[in-house]
Design a protein around this nucleic acid. Structure first.
Lengths: 344, 344
DNA sequence: CTGAAAGCGCTTACAG
DNA sequence: CTGAAAGCGCTTACAG
């Protein structure tokens, strides 16, 4: 239990025979320090096992080295992937992530957002869907001047930089994949209408049907809300309707899992009698049986980009980002697994 | 984009006609302030929308208001549940959680631990299994004097307070549940040997068999590592052995999911021909078909307790915790769902 | 019950 | 290339 005081910048300066200022410069890679001095300081710092005090640094400089993350999303798989990605990315850049659930009433969301800005004094904020489209939250952020990045936003696309993927195109291609396998009756479970991605996926599905001149059958299209439970009732309606399709495309993996579950209960064999596909490629996609054909969203990569934009100073109070930095569209990937076969 | 300076303690003091000290006292609920003064200060603070600067507070006081969380665990469901619980709990107590993955070589783990102590200067650390049993990590923590709480530790039980559940008892009861249903041939997939919980669960299973005078069949017991993939090969061996059991108890949900998947592939109907049970009650337990009978671990509650112990000062550098606070055993629950029926 | 002083460990802005 | 001074916004310890 040795309890020796930790070395401070002053200790290093004294031992190296220089001023605190010079030590600070070495620490921050300021180029205008002679190599000789730099080496000496670095050596002493090592010997003393010196670590700068983050709070002191925060207080003295204008930066807080905090990045806020606001979520409000029912899919645990999605959040945990994003969280882990962002956490890793922050650490690598000397930042800390402050995570808050911005759920509940709009007034409550506002309070949480304000606390992030005023108490934690974050250098930037990342907004996940659907909170990224809350006008009031955006307004508060804009007023405060704190830079923010949104993930897959749906509205006010010019109010902040954002990262996203092409949901329309992915849904189109996934539907096309089913059609290529020979499916002509394809059901669809729509995602929560509070997210733009839901609409885009739905449109991609519809347009793929249309461009293949396939009929759109309302009985096989149901509203879901991205939760497993909502998937259960949506799938039940689709699979017990008089026009039962040979394939179902669910707007996320959780609802696809629910669809498989309902099919099993109804003694409909997956994939033999029903192909099922999902969206996200979260953890459960590979834990289901059969393993789920799904769209891989680059979730961790999105987190990484968002943190990078904020920490690198590419986006900051002072600097408006360049147009090319404004909208980052990341690649998706169709993951073909065993939940799809040709209809018999 | 209004960019007015944020109010400081000085501003509040000036406007209230008192010293900074008094404002500080009001803010920290110091009882020796007159009601009149207190009210006045509070009112002015509200008017000015004053928020204390966390970094300044950290620097001036001896506390950092940071709690570190070290994990090194392959089960995404487990981590994300713990993480979300801890995050919520920290926020409620004015702390921030600093999360690090302590994976890789032992040397690397040490470096991460040291950085948490020396750079972030956490007030306390939470250690998840299996990193909670790394002797070197524990050693560094003890030397530093930083209090730490471990979750489900296996070794050196007297070196820190810990939260856990009764893994032995839970596994015993779950096995008994299967036996009560009429199963006499019950396979088992062991968890990663780097965690004490694996051994306890295994023992609980064995003892339940023994106390019911059931034979222990080595061909139906396989080693797994808590990953879905390891569950796949373990289940394959058990289900293709000449002594195929009528039920399989997997040491976590991911491996149970893998067992169901293998059974499906081998045309073994679950639960009709094979009952399957898991452990943890993570997200996927209810997303599988059939919904998984499993042991609910109070993961979020464990997180909450751990944060509470650290933030409340019940455990700190100065104060050794009382014996009753040292070991907190939380309740588990058997979740009966549809993956178990009586054998035919 | 209240306050003046000193200091936490850094960085910014200014000199030289 | 280097340093002395001032200050970031709080709290601790001491007086009264």
């Amino acid at each position: 239990m040795s309890e020796r005081r930790r070395a401070t910048i002053q200790d290093v300066a004294d031992r190296a025979g220089v001023s605190k200022m010079t030590v600070s410069r070495v620490l921050n890679d300021d180029p205008k320090v002679s190599d000789k001095t730099r080496q000496k300081v670095q050596q002493i710092a090592n010997e003393l096992n010196y670590r700068p005090n983050v709070s002191a640094r925060r207080l003295a400089s204008s930066k807080s080295y905090f990045i806020g993350l606001l979520y409000d999303n029912p899919s645990e798989g999605y959040i945990s992937q994003f969280l882990l990605g962002a956490l890793k990315s922050c650490r690598a850049k000397g930042y800390h992530l402050v995570v808050d659930e911005a759920s509940g009433e709009s007034e409550q969301q506002l309070q949480i957002t304000r606390s992030l800005i005023e108490e934690t004094r974050v250098d930037g904020v990342i907004l996940l869907p659907p909170v990224c489209d809350q006008p009031e939250v955006i307004e508060v952020l804009k007023e405060s001047g704190v830079p923010f990045i949104r993930v897959a936003p749906d509205t006010q696309l010019d109010c902040s930089p954002y990262v996203c993927m092409d949901d329309y195109q992915a849904a189109f291609e996934m539907t096309q994949l089913l059609i290529n396998k020979g499916h002509t009756e394809i059901g669809f479970i729509i995602g929560n209408p509070n997210q733009g991605a839901s609409r885009l996926r739905y449109q991609g599905y519809m347009d793929a049907l249309r461009s293949n001149k396939l009929a759109i059958v309302p009985e096989t299209i149901e509203q879901g809300y991205f939760t497993y439970k909502s998937g259960l009732s949506a799938a039940e309606k689709i699979l017990t309707s008089s026009k039962r399709p040979t394939a179902v495309f669910a707007s996320n993996d959780d609802m696809a899992a629910a669809t498989i579950s309902v099919a099993n209960r109804l003694q409909i064999k997956v994939p033999d009698e029903l192909s099922v596909v999902g969206y996200d490629d979260t953890h459960i996609a590979q834990a289901l049986w059969p393993p789920l054909t799904t769209v891989r969203q680059p979730i961790a990569e999105m987190a990484n980009r968002a943190v990078e934009l904020l920490s690198s100073g590419q986006v900051s109070k002072e600097r408006k980002p360049k147009a090319s930095e404004y909208r980052q569209v990341l690649d998706f990937e169709l993951k073909s697994r065993d939940s799809v076969i040709s209809p018999t």
